[in-house]
Every structure is written in C-alpha cells, then in structure tokens.
Amino acid sequence: MMRGVMASEWLKIRRKGIWLLIALGPLGVVGLQALNFFLRYDYLTKRYADDLWGAVIGNVHQLSVPTLLMGIAIVASMIAGIEHQTNAWKQTLALPVSKWCVFACKFTLLCTLLVCACTLLAAGTVVLGIALGYGTDIPLVTLLVKSYLPFLAAMPFAALQTWLSITIKNQAIPLTTGVLFSVLCLFGTAVGDWVPLKWLYLENQWNEPFYSAGPGLLLGLVIYVIGLIHFIRKDVS
C-alpha cells in the first residue's frame, strides 16, 4: 500500500515547481556565500588561514539554517496544498488506503526532498571551496555532518509543518509559523541548549553535533506521532 501511495505522491508534485525550489534553496545559500567569499577574499582567506575548508563549510551551514526552516514550511505547504486546492482529501481518503499511510507518505516525501536539498548543499559547498582555490583536501566528515545533521535536528519543524499544513486548510497559517521560525532561528545560538532552534546550529556545551541532532530526531518523532494520531481521528471535511 505504502509503495502505491508514495508513487502517487511523486506523480502529484509534477509540474508544481517543487524541484526548482529544492534546487534553489541550496544554490542560493552557496551563491550568497560565494559572493561573501569572493568580495572579501583576501580578508577571509587571511582570517581563516588555519582552516579554510572549515570556514567555507561553517559559513554555508550558518546561512543554510534559516533557509532550511523556510524550505520545510514552503515544501510541506505545497505538498499538502495539492490536496487542499480542490479538496481532494475526500477523494484520496475514500480510496482503500489508511489515513496513517497518507500522512506518513506526505512526511516521507518532504524528508526525501530535503535530503536531496542537503546533498545539493554539500555538492555546492565542495564546488565553492574548490573555486576559491582552497585545494582538494576536503574535510569530508565535517562536510557531511554540517550538511545532513541540521536536517535531522530540524525534524521537529518538519513534523510540525507537515501536521499544520495537512490539517489546516488555510495555508497562510503554516507558512506564517515557518516564517516565524526562520526569523527566530537567527537568534538561535544565543539561547539555551534545550531550545530546538539551537539544535540546527549543532552547537552545545559538549561540542558534539550528535547531541543536537539526536534530540531533534526524537522530538520530531514525538510531534510526528501526535500529528498522525490527530489526523487519523479528525473528520475529513
């Protein structure tokens, strides 16, 4: 059943411009950092002389956090909006398919698209570093950690946005919360370690990125289950 619903979900996002968005996010982040590094090349190269690749990866990561939150909100809203637009929920859910499966597939689709965006971000970072002439001695572990772990840390937001977008017809509401989160996360590093927004920066007192990603994954799972149960119990309008 899951395979069929998933195939249907992939088909539904055709010609919706979602792929363009998925590409635009990471490319925008890398592009802005390219501007930053090329404009202040001498200054930054001198300042980060010890760890040039670390500087590129770190700067890209800082900028990718608000972009990731905004991207989650927009893509989750687009995926759910396909059903809201002509109230196709009643058609989809009157098919021999369980409600949890529909919800799970929407969430899986969002996550898969985000992983693609993370991969593009990693690839873009490598291209940028090489273009800046920082050599090919790329710190792969750091690159992978900073490209993919924020995605795991962002799970609570992905689950929340999926839940809101699916259960609220008015998409202005989930989009507003998305904007709110991406603005608030700019102050993310200044708050306590327990605040989910800080997790995306992978910074904590232990200096261990997995201590940020782990709770993110866990809280994401909790919110996902709550959203799922709510969706299953809710009447279809």
Binding site: G4, S8, A88, W89, K90, L95
Partner: peptide, 26 residues
Amino acid sequence: SLVEYPSYYGHLTAYENLEAVRCILD
C-alpha cells in the same frame, strides 16, 4: 465514489489524475 464537487489535480492531465489513483488501487 464521487463526493460533491469533483476532486482533481488541476496541474496534472486527465491521464495523470487517473494514474495517481491507479497507483493506490493497484
């Protein structure tokens, strides 16, 4: 079933609309 106003995915063709349901019905 067909409940009230027809549900469809406007950006997809008629064939793709049916395909989206066919995937689920197998």
